[in-house]
Design a protein around this nucleic acid. Structure first.
Length: 150
DNA sequence: GCCAACGTTGGC
DNA sequence: GCCAACGTTGGC
């Protein structure tokens, strides 16, 4: 069992959107490392911290879980921002999973994460980290659930 | 809007 | 395969 943090810009897709939809494909990831986590490592039922990025109040806004096996990201075949000319249905380049809402939590702000010694190991705090999907350790997951999830 | 950090591209 | 140039991310 592993745990994950997934970033989303709330203007694009927020925890409230996921609660409304119950479940959503995590399409639009165009980074190989993040894709590989979805394709190779994420398993149905694993816990996800839903992180709001590029917004006035960045931080962890809710809990979700992995809800499907890996599947082709269909937006790579559609005209628009996510189109990938090198992809074919037989050999899709971009892979995603579905994510299901669990609950919203009181915002665990980036500032609070920074100020919490038990969370200083989190990948999102490390220098230059830009990955939109990062693993979360058991210790980090348990600490956040005990202290910040109601 | 700025800028540090990192990823990707493409010429050689 | 190297590496400079460019693009993107994301906090501030």
């Amino acid at each position: 069992m592993a745990y994950w943090l997934m970033k989303s810009e709330p203007d694009e897709y927020s925890i409230d959107d996921l609660l409304r939809d119950k479940k959503s494909a995590w399409f639009g990831v165009r980074n190989y490392q993040a894709r590989n986590f979805m394709r190779d490592d994420m398993k149905i039922g694993e816990g996800v911290l839903f992180y709001h990025s590029s917004c006035p109040q960045p931080g962890i806004a809710g809990i979700a879980k992995v809800a499907s096996k890996p599947m082709p990201d269909k937006t790579q075949f559609e005209p628009g921002d996510y189109f990938e000319p090198k992809s074919t249905p037989e050999k899709p380049i971009w892979i995603c999973v579905e994510v299901a809402a669990v609950k919203k939590i009181p915002l665990l702000s980036l500032a609070t994460i920074r100020a919490t010694p038990e969370l200083e190991s989190m990948r999102i705090l490390q220098r230059g980290n830009r990955l939109s999907i990062t693993p979360i350790t058991d210790a980090e997951w348990n600490f956040i659930n005990q202290h910040f999830v109601k």
